[in-house]
Design a protein around this nucleic acid. Structure first.
Lengths: 147, 147
DNA sequence: ATAATTAAGGACAAAAATATCCTTTATTTT
DNA sequence: AAAATAAAGGATATTTTTGTCCTTAATTAT
């Protein structure tokens, strides 16, 4: 469905959301290891997500690393796709036709329409935070420690 | 969602289903033009779909070309994906995790699960013929001429 | 100030996907 | 049999994606 770059972007962002805070930032080494992705390639992707006050925040130097602001946590997952320039795939015609629409439907349009809408809804209405919390219910993170 | 190659494969197969028969075969030139795809690249794809009694039938020489047997018409669209080695994307984890399952769910598993099932159902239960007929209801093909 | 740490960024390499061209083979028509 | 037609197949080129490595810049600790 998505490119590797976007998969890494999603995995990394969710991981950072689960394990980091402004007080406890994460290094690229840890992140790449945790989400099982190539380190340098992942670094590039995080750069993209960090650029011009993006989704991820970062600080250089000792004690530095990546974290998600609480504001960023509330952003929809679709924003990650947008930065990765892959939000197009959600609304795209399954057969790849540029001019596929209600007026000019491709042969799969009627059949695929509903699924497409659900996909858009999913990525638009789900926040990064929600996914992080969902994941925590299964395998608790130790972000603020377990009681 | 799918690679260009697979998009062309789907478009070409549906086009052939709509416009061809054993008595009236289609040439690669016409097909590529109709589905708006690069001719030689499409030829390779049709080769793949034709190989060892595959989905598409072909005959060389004058009067030759590509067509779909009535048996092939009844095959599920998923078979096209299978030949293109992309049927994996249907069942794949959205985050690209190899070991994502009900027992080891990724952070999006619960949210995406339903959509994934619908995707599999769609491609498994829809036949090439059904798509061809659907398309014909909108823009009639002149396969056996209009009355 | 200097050294250490960590992300940012540039340059480059490798692999995969997409695309083109040319030759060969099968089939039909003349 | 020869010529014409159309797909099959091989070789190669181009572009995009994925991945690595090294240098630079920012920040902190000594």
């Amino acid at each position: 469905m998505f490119s590797k770059a976007t998969e890494y972007a999603l995995r990394a962002t969710i991981y950072i959301a689960r394990k980091s805070s402004e007080e406890h930032k994460l290094g690229i080494e840890e992140i790449a290891k945790a989400i099982n992705s190539p380190k340098s390639f992942t670094a590039k992707i995080l750069q993209k997500l960090t650029a011009n006050n993006g989704i991820i925040s970062s600080v250089r130097g000792p004690g530095g690393g990546f974290y998600l602001s609480s504001k960023a946590q509330k952003r929809p997952v679709r924003d990650i796709l947008h930065v990765m320039e892959e939000d197009g795939v959600l609304g795209k015609c399954v057969l790849g036709l540029k001019k596929c629409s209600e007026a000019m439907p491709c042969p799969m349009h009627a059949e695929y329409k509903g699924i497409k809408q659900q996909l858009i809804q999913l990525f638009e209405h789900t926040t990064i935070q929600q996914l992080a919390h969902d994941a925590d219910r299964i395998i608790p993170s130790n972000k603020q420690g377990r009681h």
